[in-house]
Design a protein around this nucleic acid. Sequence first.
DNA 1: CGACTCCGATACTAATCGGTATTCGGATAC
DNA 2: GTATCCGAATACCGATTAGTATCGGAGTCG
Lengths: 204, 204
Amino acid sequence: MERMGRRERQQYNRARLLDAAQRLLAQRGWSASLDEIARDAGLTKGAVYSSFASKEDILMALLDRQLGAASAELADSVPAADGDGTVRAFTALSEDNSAAGRAPANAEFAMLMLEFWLAAMRDEQVRPRYIDALRRTRARVADQIADQAGPDPETLRRTATLLLGLDIGLSIQRLIDPESVPESWYADAFRMLIGSAGEGADAS
Amino acid sequence: MERMGRRERQQYNRARLLDAAQRLLAQRGWSASLDEIARDAGLTKGAVYSSFASKEDILMALLDRQLGAASAELADSVPAADGDGTVRAFTALSEDNSAAGRAPANAEFAMLMLEFWLAAMRDEQVRPRYIDALRRTRARVADQIADQAGPDPETLRRTATLLLGLDIGLSIQRLIDPESVPESWYADAFRMLIGSAGEGADAS
DNA sequence: CGACTCCGATACTAATCGGTATTCGGATAC
DNA sequence: GTATCCGAATACCGATTAGTATCGGAGTCG
């Protein structure tokens, strides 16, 4: 334990609260209580209300932090985009450093993302933030595959959207039923969509 | 109002409770209360506990009914699988007969499905039912595209999985941000995956 | 060193929820 | 027609929850 100043201490505690909220909201959903979150962070509810205005405020802050981090991670997560290292945005952080007993880290990430999606669909306060994050993510994917998916910007955006969609849709199937969705199919799909990138484009 | 016998009446009320649960669980998540659900069905909580054992039991029954219906719908939802009528499993019932003020029917369906997915990820009681429903859905998709996606059963299963994944992943993006994901991209992706079905298969 | 500040712990409240016990009323059986 | 049955309404309970009020104590500044 290092001695910390007041402001430093609060930022540290706030971060630990967000970490706890990330775990508990992913694993128990919105019904995770503030007492649980605070206790998981080694603090009490008093700490919560000195850093956040309400429970929904935690969701907002967590969404900003998490979606910002997800976009940043993506920049590193596409090594060369050859056969094996496909695009992984939704399955980011998939190095699988899961703590004992809990769900794997990538599963936790996906569950949190879908929880965010549902919150964004229901609450118009949350929606624009989530939309923005999705658009940034697609833009990152587009940057990553710009050299392989042709120069046409419209086709490039489409390919990026399809790749992100496949990453999401395959992960939803694979995370809950791994044996039905071999990991290698990610790469297969990647090749299929990149390989025939320019074919379906008919001027409208 | 027709006069109904006792048993008939209970089945009718049970169905109305499931209808209400479908709406409220989709739009307010698991924190939708039993009183709300009962009131939305024009009944009281007493009716709930004479038809269901617990709140989770409602989820189970709804999941069975909904996923059974989804699989059945799929059989009709792929007219000829030519360019425009792609595979729609996740976006089933997409004729968009949404009641006034509420979310479109297909959005409600998707939200409910993801709520189910999260419940299945968290609860091992729910998980096998959801896995089974996903597998049946993939099998249906495979049947629908069997004539176009080659005779190799392994490739066929893969193509069905990728198509379902794309349907899910594109819908998640499109439902919350329609202008970023044109509807025509569904058909484009369909063509891409069907067109190059046999290419990515390398014996492992 | 001493007064002030402010973050976080503690104590508490009003409201809500899932579930249970009991009662009510119409359909069923005879 | 009357007794019985059973599904649904009502009333109620313990437990939990988000949010508030208050207090203590460590860090800050003069």
